[in-house]
Amino acid sequence: MDKKITIVTADDHPMLLKGLTEELTTNGYNVIGQATNGIQALELVLKLQPAIALLDIDMPVLTGFEVIKMAREKGAKTKFIILSFHKESYYIVQAKAFQIDGYLLKEDTFFEIEHCINEVLNGNIYFSKSIDDQPLQNASEELKRLNLLTLSETKILKLIAQEISNQEIADTLSVSIRTIEKHRSNIIEKLGLKKGNNVLTNWALLNRNVILSQ
Protein backbone atom coordinates (compact mmCIF):
# COMPACT_ATOMS: atom_id res chain seq x y z
CA MET A 1 0.00 0.00 0.00
CA ASP A 2 1.38 3.41 -1.04
CA LYS A 3 1.65 5.46 2.14
CA LYS A 4 1.74 8.74 0.22
CA ILE A 5 -2.03 8.84 0.43
CA THR A 6 -3.47 12.24 1.32
CA ILE A 7 -5.03 12.72 4.75
CA VAL A 8 -6.87 15.53 6.54
CA THR A 9 -7.01 15.38 10.36
CA ALA A 10 -9.50 17.19 12.61
CA ASP A 11 -9.66 17.44 16.41
CA ASP A 12 -10.36 20.37 18.74
CA HIS A 13 -7.64 19.25 21.17
CA PRO A 14 -4.40 20.78 19.80
CA MET A 15 -2.08 18.26 21.50
CA LEU A 16 -4.04 15.26 20.21
CA LEU A 17 -4.18 16.76 16.72
CA LYS A 18 -0.43 17.48 16.78
CA GLY A 19 0.40 13.98 18.03
CA LEU A 20 -1.79 12.24 15.46
CA THR A 21 -0.44 14.36 12.60
CA GLU A 22 3.18 13.77 13.61
CA GLU A 23 2.60 10.02 13.95
CA LEU A 24 1.05 9.85 10.47
CA THR A 25 3.80 11.97 8.92
CA THR A 26 6.56 9.97 10.61
CA ASN A 27 5.07 6.80 9.16
CA GLY A 28 5.07 8.18 5.62
CA TYR A 29 1.51 9.46 5.23
CA ASN A 30 0.87 12.78 3.49
CA VAL A 31 -1.12 14.98 5.91
CA ILE A 32 -2.29 17.87 3.72
CA GLY A 33 -4.58 19.65 6.18
CA GLN A 34 -5.44 20.02 9.87
CA ALA A 35 -8.62 21.44 11.41
CA THR A 36 -9.65 22.32 14.96
CA ASN A 37 -13.39 22.65 14.31
CA GLY A 38 -16.04 21.12 12.09
CA ILE A 39 -16.41 23.93 9.57
CA GLN A 40 -12.63 24.01 8.98
CA ALA A 41 -12.68 20.24 8.49
CA LEU A 42 -15.53 20.48 5.97
CA GLU A 43 -13.78 23.26 4.03
CA LEU A 44 -10.51 21.30 3.90
CA VAL A 45 -12.20 18.11 2.73
CA LEU A 46 -14.12 19.92 -0.03
CA LYS A 47 -11.09 21.97 -1.14
CA LEU A 48 -8.34 19.35 -0.91
CA GLN A 49 -10.36 16.16 -1.59
CA PRO A 50 -8.09 13.92 0.54
CA ALA A 51 -8.20 10.15 0.24
CA ILE A 52 -8.85 9.91 4.00
CA ALA A 53 -10.28 12.25 6.63
CA LEU A 54 -9.69 11.36 10.29
CA LEU A 55 -12.28 13.22 12.34
CA ASP A 56 -13.18 13.61 16.00
CA ILE A 57 -16.94 13.58 16.78
CA ASP A 58 -17.15 16.36 19.37
CA MET A 59 -15.91 19.48 17.60
CA PRO A 60 -17.10 23.11 17.70
CA VAL A 61 -19.50 24.42 15.01
CA LEU A 62 -20.08 21.04 13.31
CA THR A 63 -19.70 17.54 14.73
CA GLY A 64 -17.69 14.91 12.88
CA PHE A 65 -20.95 13.25 11.80
CA GLU A 66 -22.29 16.54 10.41
CA VAL A 67 -19.05 17.14 8.50
CA ILE A 68 -19.34 13.71 6.88
CA LYS A 69 -23.01 14.16 5.97
CA MET A 70 -22.46 17.61 4.44
CA ALA A 71 -19.27 16.61 2.59
CA ARG A 72 -20.99 13.64 0.99
CA GLU A 73 -23.99 15.77 0.01
CA LYS A 74 -21.53 17.98 -1.87
CA GLY A 75 -20.06 14.98 -3.67
CA ALA A 76 -16.86 14.36 -1.68
CA LYS A 77 -15.28 10.96 -2.45
CA THR A 78 -13.11 11.02 0.69
CA LYS A 79 -13.14 7.96 2.98
CA PHE A 80 -14.14 9.03 6.49
CA ILE A 81 -12.75 7.58 9.71
CA ILE A 82 -14.02 8.69 13.11
CA LEU A 83 -11.42 8.83 15.90
CA SER A 84 -13.21 9.26 19.22
CA PHE A 85 -13.32 8.50 22.95
CA HIS A 86 -16.93 7.31 22.54
CA LYS A 87 -17.65 3.59 22.39
CA GLU A 88 -21.32 3.66 23.50
CA SER A 89 -24.07 2.15 21.34
CA TYR A 90 -25.59 5.60 20.70
CA TYR A 91 -22.50 6.70 18.75
CA ILE A 92 -22.02 3.35 17.02
CA VAL A 93 -25.64 3.48 15.76
CA GLN A 94 -24.98 6.93 14.29
CA ALA A 95 -21.75 5.75 12.67
CA LYS A 96 -23.54 2.81 11.06
CA ALA A 97 -26.50 4.97 10.00
CA PHE A 98 -24.17 7.44 8.28
CA GLN A 99 -22.30 4.49 6.70
CA ILE A 100 -18.99 5.79 7.99
CA ASP A 101 -15.99 3.93 6.57
CA GLY A 102 -14.08 3.50 9.83
CA TYR A 103 -14.53 4.06 13.55
CA LEU A 104 -11.53 4.09 15.88
CA LEU A 105 -11.03 4.88 19.55
CA LYS A 106 -8.41 7.32 20.79
CA GLU A 107 -7.07 4.56 23.00
CA ASP A 108 -6.15 2.51 19.91
CA THR A 109 -2.53 1.98 18.87
CA PHE A 110 -1.13 3.46 15.69
CA PHE A 111 -0.99 -0.08 14.33
CA GLU A 112 -4.79 -0.20 14.64
CA ILE A 113 -5.13 3.18 12.92
CA GLU A 114 -2.92 2.03 10.07
CA HIS A 115 -4.85 -1.22 9.74
CA CYS A 116 -8.10 0.76 9.58
CA ILE A 117 -6.73 3.08 6.87
CA ASN A 118 -5.70 0.09 4.76
CA GLU A 119 -9.08 -1.58 5.22
CA VAL A 120 -11.17 1.44 4.21
CA LEU A 121 -8.95 2.16 1.21
CA ASN A 122 -9.69 -1.40 0.10
CA GLY A 123 -13.42 -0.65 0.27
CA ASN A 124 -14.13 -2.28 3.64
CA ILE A 125 -15.93 -0.93 6.72
CA TYR A 126 -13.76 -1.12 9.83
CA PHE A 127 -14.66 -0.73 13.51
CA SER A 128 -12.03 -0.70 16.23
CA LYS A 129 -11.23 -4.06 17.83
CA SER A 130 -11.51 -2.19 21.16
CA ILE A 131 -15.28 -1.81 20.72
CA ASP A 132 -17.21 -4.63 22.37
CA ASP A 133 -19.44 -6.79 20.20
CA GLN A 134 -22.55 -5.80 22.19
CA PRO A 135 -22.67 -2.12 21.13
CA LEU A 136 -22.10 -3.20 17.52
CA GLN A 137 -24.91 -5.75 17.76
CA ASN A 138 -27.21 -3.22 19.45
CA ALA A 139 -26.51 -0.71 16.69
CA SER A 140 -27.31 -3.24 13.98
CA GLU A 141 -30.56 -4.23 15.73
CA GLU A 142 -31.73 -0.63 16.07
CA LEU A 143 -31.13 0.04 12.39
CA LYS A 144 -32.95 -3.16 11.46
CA ARG A 145 -35.98 -1.99 13.45
CA LEU A 146 -35.96 1.38 11.68
CA ASN A 147 -36.01 -0.47 8.37
CA LEU A 148 -39.31 -2.10 9.41
CA LEU A 149 -41.10 1.26 9.15
CA THR A 150 -43.19 2.14 6.11
CA LEU A 151 -42.41 5.27 4.09
CA SER A 152 -45.27 7.11 5.82
CA GLU A 153 -44.06 6.04 9.26
CA THR A 154 -40.49 7.09 8.44
CA LYS A 155 -41.71 10.50 7.26
CA ILE A 156 -43.72 10.98 10.47
CA LEU A 157 -40.78 9.87 12.63
CA LYS A 158 -38.53 12.42 10.92
CA LEU A 159 -41.06 15.17 11.68
CA ILE A 160 -41.29 14.02 15.31
CA ALA A 161 -37.49 14.16 15.53
CA GLN A 162 -37.70 17.80 14.44
CA GLU A 163 -40.04 18.51 17.39
CA ILE A 164 -43.09 19.10 15.19
CA SER A 165 -46.42 18.59 16.98
CA ASN A 166 -49.09 16.03 16.06
CA GLN A 167 -51.36 18.80 14.81
CA GLU A 168 -48.66 20.28 12.59
CA ILE A 169 -47.77 16.82 11.24
CA ALA A 170 -51.44 16.13 10.50
CA ASP A 171 -51.75 19.48 8.69
CA THR A 172 -48.53 18.90 6.74
CA LEU A 173 -49.63 15.44 5.57
CA SER A 174 -53.32 16.43 5.16
CA VAL A 175 -54.57 13.66 7.47
CA SER A 176 -56.42 13.58 10.81
CA ILE A 177 -54.72 13.66 14.21
CA ARG A 178 -56.25 10.22 14.83
CA THR A 179 -54.32 8.88 11.81
CA ILE A 180 -51.08 10.37 13.17
CA GLU A 181 -51.74 8.84 16.60
CA LYS A 182 -52.33 5.45 14.95
CA HIS A 183 -49.04 5.76 13.07
CA ARG A 184 -47.25 6.73 16.29
CA SER A 185 -48.65 3.62 17.99
CA ASN A 186 -47.45 1.42 15.11
CA ILE A 187 -43.99 3.02 15.18
CA ILE A 188 -43.67 2.42 18.94
CA GLU A 189 -44.59 -1.23 18.44
CA LYS A 190 -42.17 -1.77 15.54
CA LEU A 191 -39.31 -0.10 17.41
CA GLY A 192 -39.99 -2.22 20.49
CA LEU A 193 -40.39 0.79 22.77
CA LYS A 194 -42.18 0.62 26.12
CA LYS A 195 -45.46 2.51 26.00
CA GLY A 196 -45.69 5.72 28.01
CA ASN A 197 -46.08 9.48 27.79
CA ASN A 198 -43.77 11.05 25.19
CA VAL A 199 -41.78 7.81 24.83
CA LEU A 200 -41.62 8.10 21.03
CA THR A 201 -40.80 11.82 21.08
CA ASN A 202 -38.03 11.29 23.63
CA TRP A 203 -36.60 8.37 21.64
CA ALA A 204 -36.78 10.35 18.38
CA LEU A 205 -34.96 13.33 19.90
CA LEU A 206 -32.25 11.08 21.35
CA ASN A 207 -31.76 9.37 17.98
CA ARG A 208 -32.40 12.42 15.85
CA ASN A 209 -29.21 12.21 13.77
CA VAL A 210 -29.83 8.56 12.93
CA ILE A 211 -33.47 9.16 11.99
CA LEU A 212 -32.75 12.15 9.78
CA SER A 213 -30.00 10.22 7.97
CA GLN A 214 -32.49 7.57 6.79
Rank of each mutant, 00 (worst) to 15 (best):
V175T: 15
V120Y: 13
E189N: 12
K106H: 04
G102S: 04
G28I: 05
T150Q: 10
P135Y: 04
L205Y: 04
Q99C: 03
D171N: 15
V61G: 00
V120I: 15
E88R: 04
G192K: 10
L20V: 11
D56C: 03
L20T: 15
N186Q: 14
L151P: 00
L20M: 15
Y91W: 12
F127P: 01
T172V: 03
T201S: 09
H115K: 15
Q167K: 15
L143C: 10
C116P: 00
N207I: 02
K18Y: 12
D11N: 13
T150V: 07
K129Q: 12
N30V: 01
A53Y: 08
L200G: 06
W203E: 04
K69M: 07
L149P: 01
Q162I: 03
P60E: 08
H13L: 13
L193A: 09
E141D: 13
E66H: 00
T63E: 10
N27W: 02
L104M: 12
M1I: 09
L48I: 09
E23R: 10
P135A: 08
K155T: 13
L149A: 09
S174P: 00
I187R: 04
V93L: 02
S128I: 04
I81T: 07
L46D: 07
H13F: 12
E168C: 06
A97L: 00
L212N: 09
K18W: 09
K4H: 13
T179H: 11
T36P: 00
Q137P: 00
L55T: 03
N147I: 00
L149D: 05
K77F: 10
I92H: 08
L146F: 15
S152I: 12
G19L: 11
P60T: 07
K195E: 11
D101T: 00
G75Q: 03
C116T: 12
G75Y: 10
I125W: 06
F65V: 07
T25K: 14
A53Q: 13
K77C: 03
K129S: 14
T109G: 08
T21I: 06
F111I: 12
I117A: 01
V45N: 08
I32L: 00
K69W: 10
L83F: 15
N147V: 00
A53V: 02
E181V: 04
L105A: 04
I180A: 14
I125Y: 14
T9D: 05
V199Q: 13
I5M: 14
D132Q: 11
L148F: 14
H86R: 09
L20Q: 14
N30I: 00
